[in-house]
Design a binder for these strands. Structure first.
Lengths: 221, 221
DNA sequence: GTCTATACTACGATAGAC
DNA sequence: GTCTATCGTAGTATAGAC
């Protein structure tokens, strides 16, 4: 995931000092989430960080590399949260619910996460050939997460806990119910009449998803 | 919805000739759907239409106006399909299912529809003040559709057909299950292992949504 | 209604001083 | 590691001939 191969750090617990590189990543994350790759200029990023435009190129070889680093970081944060819950013990239904809870937590943690992930999913910007290794890495991570969810669904169907649904269609619906929801920003806040990321809204969202999976809209028998 | 106030047409059935204006709209729709407002240059649009760059400004005052015209057309097509089913007679559950079927049909009709709608929902590009009237019109249309769906859900809850769900949360989930799905493009096709817009994929998608609403993932009692 | 020519601005990226 | 200066390109938009 580390694209620019910084000098190997001695250990993860040494220093959490906010380096320029990290500041750039944070600023760029917020901007790219709002307006997308093409909609953000490096001038804007540099100004928000408090650097000159040229200084960015000392930390990232190109705008594309910066964007891919941002995407990789976001996907890494999601994986960090969701991966453990994929190998949890328990019944498929419980495990799926824990996995979705973890995903919702990851998306609710930073406001930019869901938007960037959604952009990564449905946008196809044409990054050049230089981007291939980084893109392959993020796609591998993504594929791992999706395959974990697919396994959960198949296990639930096999043991009779789930209906014999189309697994890919169901995954699409679950992505919509989580990633889209938290990516919907201002529109979602107008619709729900309140913030999307408040503890209460997140809790309610988890409950609604869980109940929808258990019973659909129909009243429980 | 018509932003540039063309000379009043004598009637809708006179001539379906493909004017330059319509060609531009169609080309721009495809491009904006793929790469977003900022990601598309007017040069690219003009070349794809077969005109010089400057000729576009004879039909649209600015890039922003062109984008808003594209958005309005897309939303209009959706409204045209969905609106009738909102005032259908019948039980709330049946009406909701017909309404979602109509929405799916509208999204599956043109490949760009869902992407543009999704972009309109979650992106906040900063169009200037010049855009206010057009934006207000599209938002009114959107609000009407959403309010129709909300009424359906509330009616279903009131008559005991639906659980007492959070209506806005459910709408978000339904948008995700429809708009996001058909906007997911290449990713969705890799995931499902086939085209998103084939008659068979659309039919399956409708069935999956319907069953999810009826029973969730759980096996029917 | 489309064209050529052009104005002005911003973009990504590089060179080289400090 | 950050800066100023600059290159080449492409962006939106306008003016005016045809």
């Amino acid at each position: 995931m580390m694209s620019d191969a910084p000098p190997a750090k001695p250990g993860p617990e040494i220093a959490e000092a906010s380096t320029s590189r990290e500041k750039i990543l944070e600023v760029a994350e917020a901007l790219f989430a709002r307006r997308g790759f093409a909609g953000v200029g490096l001038r804007e990023v540099a100004e928000a960080v408090g650097l000159g435009k040229s200084s960015l190129f000392h930390h990232f070889r190109s705008k594309t590399q910066l964007y891919l680093a941002v995407l990789g970081r976001v996907l890494g944060r999601i994986e960090e949260r969701v991966r453990p819950s994929l190998s949890d013990p328990g019944e498929p239904r419980e495990r799926l619910e824990r996995c979705l809870d973890a995903l919702v937590d990851a998306l609710a943690e930073h406001p930019a996460t869901a938007r960037l992930l959604l952009r990564g999913l449905f946008e196809d910007d044409d990054f050049g050939d230089e981007a291939q290794p980084e893109l392959a890495a993020t796609e591998r991570t993504l594929h791992g997460l999706l395959e974990g969810m697919a396994r959960l669904l198949r296990a639930g169907i096999a043991c009779g806990a789930f209906r014999p649904v189309s697994v890919p269609d169901t995954i699409q619906t679950l992505i919509g119910a989580t990633v889209y929801h938290f990516a919907s920003g201002e529109f979602g806040e107008v619709l729900t009449g309140g913030p999307l990321l408040s503890a209460e809204a997140v809790r309610r969202r988890k409950a609604e998803i869980r109940e929808l999976l258990r019973h659909g809209l129909a009243v429980p028998a």
